[in-house]
């Protein structure tokens, strides 16, 4: 019932991308996002497209599986496109009352759609190829310098990994509780708002009781194994950069430079506009 959300759920496969150090993937995603919002002109757009397709192919995650994740944001996409279509000032093509359809609006709408779609595809590619644990490990090590300015990096990373670890457990538990109550004739689907909210009580009470019990047990288990925070703690699988990671950084860097160069070439030398003209 609750397992149909594919947006960003880890997809197990053995690929170059899966094996990369999580720090590379985090930095890469960030760089990709920045490049998406900086680029100008069709040359850079083509480069971003090729780069994304290359990464998806390398990751061995089926393309249809990644695209399924877009379904969840389709409404946001439509709203954004509509806003840009009708509220951008410029050369008017058609006018309905206060709504003006402009050349610039069409351009902006297309541009924003492309950006959002690429943004979702790029970020879900990261979460699809990186387990939550790797991700928090990468965050913890990558952001270690922030400890100097008083940010409790280890504790935040620990909380994040515990929270992420518990999502599937609690999802499964919710499913089981729902079934147990449905076996007693509970009805979660029909009725008005108040009736439905009331029907949630038999689901929420056991779920909360169990979440608290689990948290308590976990704290006890961590304490029994002498957990005392991040200081002096070693890792079972320490993160180390390999040759592949260095190459990946190099590739990312060249991609980013190329994006800037192509954008500049388009605007300064060829004298083009933001997207096409």
């Amino acid at each position: 019932m609750l397992k149909d959300v594919t947006l960003g759920q880890y997809y197990p496969a053995d690929s170059v991308i899966h094996r990369l150090d999580p720090r590379v993937k985090l930095a890469g995603t960030l760089l990709y996002l920045i490049s998406l919002f900086l680029f100008q002109g069709p040359l850079a757009l083509a480069t971003a497209t090729v780069f994304l397709i290359l990464l998806i192919t390398l990751s061995k995650v089926p393309f249809s599986y990644i695209v399924k994740g877009l379904r969840t944001i389709i409404i946001i996409l439509i709203v954004t496109a509509a806003m840009n279509l009708f509220f951008t000032t410029g050369t008017v093509i058609v006018q309905f009352g206060i709504f003006k359809l402009t050349y610039e609006g069409i351009q902006m709408a297309i541009l924003m759609m492309i950006r959002l779609v690429y943004l979702i595809l790029g970020t879900s590619l990261m979460t699809l190829t990186t387990t939550p644990n790797q991700l928090t490990d990468g965050l913890e090590k990558g952001l270690r310098w922030m400890k100097k300015i008083g940010v409790p990096v280890h504790e935040i990373a620990m909380m994040m990994s515990i929270a992420l670890r518990f999502i599937p457990i609690l999802t499964e538990e919710t499913d089981k509780i729902m079934k147990a109550q449905m076996a007693r004739g509970a009805d979660f689907q029909s009725g008005g708002l108040i009736k439905r909210a009331k029907a949630m009580i038999p689901l929420l009470v056991p779920l909360f009781v169990s979440a608290f019990r689990r948290a308590n047990d976990l704290a006890m288990a961590m304490e029994a194994r002498c957990y005392h925070g991040g200081d002096g703690r070693t890792k079972m699988k320490p993160l180390r950069y390999t040759a592949a990671d260095r190459n990946a950084y190099l590739l990312l860097f060249s991609y980013f430079v190329a994006m800037i160069a192509l954008s500049l070439l388009w605007t300064k030398v060829l004298g083009g506009g933001k997207l096409f003209f």
Binding site: E173, K179, P206
Partner: peptide, 17 residues
């Protein structure tokens, strides 16, 4: 059907509320 075929799950914690 579910009242005719009664199913008791393994963990009572999942249904007591």
């Amino acid at each position: 059907l579910r009242t005719k075929v009664g199913l008791v799950f393994q963990y009572p914690e999942h249904q007591l509320f």
